[in-house]
């Protein structure tokens, strides 16, 4: 399956006995049942329910490896660090030690798990993708291009960082609804998202549309004929 570079990825290590509960209290998905060897994807949201970052949490046993994004890391840390208070949580940025890629179009039989083979970690996500993380000593052989990956995303309605997943959108509009747990406890932005769901009014939706059918400014990932866009139902 094609392997493409993931240049905006970042990797942070969260340690301490309260780390999992801490992430659970500040993001949209239910984290507290996560077990070693498993991963889960979740969204940190602002008080207006806008996306701060969409992250993948790998439970490594003693620590949590949180794959986030370099372009959003500053805001993410500004959001979480003041809230640690007296909880046992520390965060280390190890982005510089690692390189990142996406293997897409895969059929994952074990969604929500990860394996490490020869120091390369493959995280099996829900979107028929593997997040691939390796130390800088390894070398990736990329077999796909960013344009080809975008075409695949358009075909499969897969949102991506800095296209659909931006700080202007909330998770439901950005196509991340499956990572918003409907019945977990409170977190920042939860009341707004819960109200949108309960009233059936989430406003915008991620759609695949013909380029000629939508306003240019609503397109978030442009393809040759079809594109991804975040639009209101009547747009």
């Amino acid at each position: 399956m094609p392997l493409v570079a993931y240049p905006d990825a970042a990797l942070t290590i969260w340690q301490g006995k309260d780390a999992l509960k801490f992430i659970d209290g500040l993001s949209t998905n239910k984290m507290v049942d996560l077990e070693k060897g498993h991963l889960i994807q979740t969204v940190f949201t602002s008080s207006q329910a806008k996306i701060i970052d969409f992250v993948t949490v790998f439970h490594m046993g003693e620590v949590l490896a949180v794959q986030c994004h370099q372009s959003k890391l500053h805001n993410l840390l500004n959001h979480v660090l003041p809230r640690i208070l007296s909880q046992d949580v520390s965060i280390t940025d190890v982005t510089e030690r690692n390189q990142f890629a996406i293997e897409y179009g895969v059929t994952n039989e074990h969604i929500g798990t990860f394996v490490s083979l020869s120091n390369v970690t493959y995280g099996h996500t829900e979107s028929n993708m593997n997040i691939v993380i390796a130390s800088k000593e390894n070398s990736f052989e990329y077999t796909g291009t960013a344009n080809e990956f975008d075409s695949w995303r358009i075909e499969n309605l897969v949102p991506w960082n800095n296209h659909e997943i931006t700080t202007k959108n909330h998770p439901l509009a950005a196509g991340l609804g499956q990572f918003v747990h409907p019945a977990k406890g409170c977190y920042i932005g939860q009341e707004i998202l819960a109200r949108m769901v309960s009233r059936g009014r989430q406003g915008k939706n991620l759609v695949r549309c013909k380029n000629t059918e939508v306003d240019d400014k609503l397109i978030t990932t442009r393809g040759e004929i079809y594109s991804l866009g975040i639009v209101r139902p009547n747009q």
Partner: peptide, 18 residues
């Protein structure tokens, strides 16, 4: 994946309030 937890990476500085 290189966690760097056993080596020299230092934690992000906490914002310690007054």
């Amino acid at each position: 994946m290189d966690c760097g937890t056993c080596e020299t990476s230092s934690p992000v500085q906490l914002m310690t309030p007054e």
